[in-house]
Design a protein around this nucleic acid. Structure first.
Length: 637
RNA sequence: GCCACUGUAGCUCAGCUGGUAGAGCAGCUGAUUCGUAAUCAGCAGGUCAACGGUUCGAAUCCGUUCAGUGGCUCCA
């Protein structure tokens, strides 16, 4: 029998007969188990502990701490759940059950409609199977054998999958339960101890809207009880940050059946909006943008010309007025093109930057609406930069820097970039695409930025860069985008007179930094869990008189702070100090000024910071200075 | 749009197998004049999402619609 050379993690090389199993080569002191080794990795391929090795290479062992270990653990947990479901509801058919970011799911076709109430029973059955400690046995089958097996079991989804494959396959057996699976898996069901079913949702078979809707059961599993509980706590924490909940509690905005998917901003929410808008306008003025405003309702012919009618009609709102067809704008670009076309543009005018906080209406499908994150009317922080092809790179680089500057001012430091290149279906010549893709890539390279390339993911009209920010609890949000457009200037017959005296077609760069104000406000709320930086706080300081004996002086303090441009309010209620503090803390007011006889006497105030407590006595002037500085420099607390 | 679930006071929720609604918080009024996260008492507040059906009788059962939640699909 042939000998295999295997390099182990310890650095030593061992020789083993072909057909040896990884589990036999485990270093001394390492044990298999949920809190130990779960699988092996031979070179880059994950390998079952009991699967014979046929070639040599680098062999290492992975635990739950490794990405490969998690994959195997959750994948096996999915099989465990599937077996439990099969035993409880034998008429269920299994589709697919992969591991995902924080756990796993299994798609099931069953006459039984699963609900939360079924979870305890399924979990109980899973525990039982864990106790049986069944070995997971890998078996290689020829395609025909596999087909016969799953046909016999009536597993039509597995049969359909096998029919699409043209190779020999593997199945994993645990007791009576067999599943088509590439694996690998943990060696026994006993390895998986702590798990929880989380939710049930509909999911189309193979992700195809036209195919059958299956029931997707989401769940997660961890090696220890503590880790599972930690995960569940994280879910709870994320729920506490939910901007829909905070928006209601802090009285920032609301939603109403009269305008589904459209936010109504309350006075406090509008303050946040206004602060962002004022900041945004100033930044754009400084960056050489010219601000414009275009109408919401425009004649339908415009949208025929721009191509939106052909490609985006499903998402548009139409209206007939005076027997003429109008549409609400779903995008701002055509309006900007009309303004451009209104002038005779020289190459000396380029780059020409038109910016607009443009409110657009898009008829999103009812099921996709989600708080401020996915709405039907929203305001894009939009701009269109008209450039010569040679200017793309420089202008794109400027936008990229602009975006970073702005994100940092809002307290985001962690970004991720994606460059999307030409899709199958597209307009423009290959030469244009070469140029556009190279210009965007060069812009990023010139700034020494790392980015991921998404081949074929660009818009049909040009390549793009997408910006994702990572929030305080590690979630990623797509906000900014920079897109080249080779198409629209053509459709609108836009031109500029070059140095050669001839007409040329400009390139348009569409860009948004924050994405949409609604969505960005939602992200801010969740990122800060409602504790917004001072400059964005609707109520910046609340003056708290200890009793109405000091009300007059407290009123005076409040007025003085207001005169300094600080959003100050006064809690005149006849309540104890503790009550007022608690109320201000709950409403996430950043500062409190406590006013009692001592302060009135000394002409001072006692400053208190949200979540931190008493900062001691201060003069009103120094408090105003302190707050103004924190506001003006947009300190992220 | 699709699948599942949900809709009771401003908010969070209770209301068993049908007998015309209840709590806490918030709000208002009064008492209290108070020192760094909840003073006490009282009052008021609901077409039980809407519409239709079954029934002597519907918040409760059935249907339709609307809205929301979790996903899927979509995201020019």
């Amino acid at each position: 029998m042939a000998e295999l050379q295997l390099q182990l993690e310890s650095g030593k090389t061992v020789t083993a007969p072909a057909g040896s199993k990884p589990i036999d080569l485990l270093d001394d002191g390492r044990k298999v188990g949920s809190d130990g080794v779960l699988a092996a990795v031979l070179d880059d391929q994950i390998w079952d502990l009991h699967r014979p090795l046929l070639t040599g290479g680098k062999l290492r062992f992975v635990t739950f701490e490794d990405a490969e270990g998690k994959f195997v653990f959750w994948h096996s947990a999915a099989h465990l759940m599937a077996q439990a479901i099969k035993e409880l509801y034998p008429e269920s058919l299994l589709a697919i059950g992969p591991p995902i970011a924080d756990g796993f799911y299994y798609d099931i076709d069953s006459p039984h409609a699963f609900s939360q109430e079924d979870f305890p029973e399924i979990e109980k059955k899973m525990k039982e199977i864990v106790k049986r400690n069944l070995p997971l046995i890998r078996k290689e089958l020829e395609r025909d054998e596999a087909l016969a097996l799953f046909r016999k079991m009536g597993d039509s989804y597995k049969v359909e999958m096998i029919e699409d494959l043209n190779e020999s396959l593997t199945v994993y057996e645990q007791g009576e339960f067999v599943d088509l699976c590439r694996g690998p898996h943990v060696d026994r069901t006993g390895r998986i101890k702590h798990f929880k079913l989380l939710s049930v949702a509909g999911a189309y078979w193979r992700g195809d809207e036209k195919k059958k809707m299956l029931q997707r059961l989401y769940a997660t599993a961890y090696p220890t009880k503590e880790q599972l509980e930690e995960h569940l706590t994280r879910i709870e924490e994320a729920k506490k940050r939910d901007h829909r909940k905070l928006g209601r509690e802090l009285d920032l905005f609301s939603f109403h059946g009269e305008a589904p998917g459209s936010a109504f901003f309350h006075p406090k929410g509008q303050i946040i909006w206004n602060e962002i808008e004022a900041y945004w306008r100033k930044k754009h003025e400084d960056a050489g943008y010219q601000q414009i405003r275009t109408p919401f309702l425009m004649n339908e012919t415009l949208w025929h010309k721009s191509g939106h009618y052909d490609h985006y009609r499903e998402n548009m709102y139409f209206s007939v007025v005076d027997e003429q067809n109008f549409a609400l704008k779903p995008m701002n670009c055509p309006g900007h093109c009309l303004i451009y076309a209104n002038h005779q543009i020289s190459y000396r005018d380029l780059p020409l930057k038109y910016a607009e906080l443009g409110t657009v209406h898009r008829h999103e499908k009812s099921g996709v609406l989600h708080g401020l994150f996915r709405v039907r009317v929203f305001t894009q922080d939009d701009a269109h930069i008209f450039v010569t092809p040679d200017q793309i790179e420089e202008e794109a680089a400027k936008v990229v820097q602009f975006i970073f500057e702005m994100y940092r001012d809002f307290g985001f430091e962690d970004f991720r970039l994606e460059l999307s290149t030409r899709p199958e279906s597209r307009v423009g010549t290959d030469e244009m695409w070469d140029k556009g893709e190279a210009a965007l890539a060069n812009a990023l390279n010139s700034l020494n930025l790392k980015y991921q390339i998404n081949e074929g993911d660009g818009a049909f009209y040009g390549p793009k860069i997408d910006f994702h920010i990572t929030d305080a609890i590690g979630r990623s949000w797509q906000c900014g985008t920079v897109q080249c457009d080779f198409s629209m200037p053509d459709l609108f017959n836009l031109d500029y007179i070059g140095a050669d005296g001839e007409k040329h077609t400009p390139v348009m760069i569409h860009r948004a930094l924050l994405g949409s104000l609604e969505r960005f406000i939602g992200i801010l709320i969740e990122n800060y869990a409602g504790d917004l930086p001072l400059w964005l706080s609707p109520e910046q300081i609340r003056v708290l008189p200890i009793s109405d004996k000091t009300l007059a002086y407290a009123t005076q303090v409040c007025e003085e702070l207001k005169a300094q441009g600080i959003r100050a309010s006064l809690d005149v209620r006849d309540e104890k100090l503790g009550f007022k503090i608690r109320d201000a803390e709950i409403h996430k007011v950043p500062y409190m000024a406590v006013i009692g006889p001592k302060e009135a006497e000394a002409g001072r105030l006692s400053l208190r910071r949200r979540k931190e407590g008493d900062l001691g006595a201060q003069s009103v002037e120094s408090t105003a200075v302190r707050l103004r500085e924190e506001i003006d420099s947009r300190v992220v607390h």
